[in-house]
């Protein structure tokens, strides 16, 4: 039983890890907590829903398209809201307000369009469970974990093996010095938002498959934020740890204590962790920013 919960928790945590990493790469490059990330999460689920329900596209294809849309929307949000602020050299608090506003606006639009209904995809993404000894694990959980691992590997390949990845890491450390290398900051920031949006979209689309498609799915961004805080803001490894930890605490308190107060337990525990280690779990262990 416990092993089963453990696997569930890791699978859910891997989704949070994806969202948290998307949150962290933007934090690294602009130094802002980017709540517009929540919009890409919600869009990841809703676009897949709309495409598969109204255009009757296959669910898998809808998800791929919806992840792409989430990525593009993320880059677009940066371009039309944050870019002008950056150009004018506005203080960081404006960025924060702008990203929160965009998040609320997108959520409001989704609520309006979907009439605030809780829905689900026209069919299940994947049926059945895998059974090993007495452990029963839904195939969907395995799929989610697999996709999360692959996505993170792909991200790290981009960051560590490509030219734009190098530029992102330079900009995250010292954007002015990066410009002196001939790196165009607009391109790098746009790409970072695109990557973050793709991660948010993947998380949103799959969480929509696991739970349901509902307008407040975007609120998962707060879990991403907390995962980053607990892991140590700015550390990608920390974000992954933080995401897994939240997934585990949530699943286990859900199973053994009470589903209704599980969020309270989760966030309470995280606050305790932060009180003990304000720099986050990986704050010291992982010093690299990217």
């Amino acid at each position: 039983m416990f092993v089963q919960q453990l696997v569930n928790g890791i699978s859910l945590g891997s989704m949070y890890a994806l969202l948290a990493v998307g949150f962290a790469i933007v934090y690294n490059i602009l130094g802002i907590v980017n709540f517009s990330h929540g919009a890409t999460i919600a869009l990841g689920a809703y676009c897949a829903y709309w495409l598969s329900t109204y255009l009757r596209l296959p669910l898998e294809l809808s998800m791929v398209l919806s992840v792409t849309i989430a990525g593009l929307v993320s880059a677009l949000i940066e371009r039309i809201t944050l870019h002008p602020l950056r150009r004018k050299g506005q203080p960081q608090i404006f960025f924060f307000i702008a990203s929160l506003t965009v998040f609320n606006l997108v959520t409001a639009i989704i609520i309006y369009v979907s009439k605030a209904n809780i829905t689900s995809y026209p069919r299940t993404l994947i049926y059945g469970s895998i059974r090993m000894a007495n452990v029963i694990v839904p195939k969907l959980d395995v799929l989610m974990l697999g996709i999360a691992v692959l996505s993170l590997l792909a991200l790290s390949a981009v960051l560590y093996k490509t030219k734009i990845g190098l530029a992102i890491r330079c900009c995250s450390y010292d954007s002015r010095a990066a410009q002196l290398m001939g790196i165009n900051p607009d391109l790098v920031i746009g790409t970072t938002f695109l990557l973050a949006g793709l991660l948010g979209g993947i998380g949103g689309a799959l969480l929509g498959a696991k739970y349901a498609v509902y307008p407040e799915l975007g609120d998962m961004v707060y879990r991403a934020f907390f995962a980053c805080m607990v892991g140590g803001l700015g550390s990608l490894t920390g974000a992954i740890f933080g995401g897994l930890l939240i997934g585990l605490i949530e699943t286990i308190s859900n199973a053994y204590i009470n589903a209704a107060i599980s969020p309270a337990i989760t966030f309470g525990l995280l606050v305790v962790i932060l009180l003990v280690r304000p720099q986050g779990i990986a704050g010291k262990l992982v010093e690299d920013k990217i």
């Binding site: 190098l166 530029a167 330079c170 010292d174």
Partner: peptide, 14 residues
């Protein structure tokens, strides 16, 4: 203003 988070080689690549 070197990139302390990158290796020497990566700095040169930058």
């Amino acid at each position: 203003r070197i990139f302390a988070n990158l290796t020497v080689y990566e700095n040169l690549m930058a």
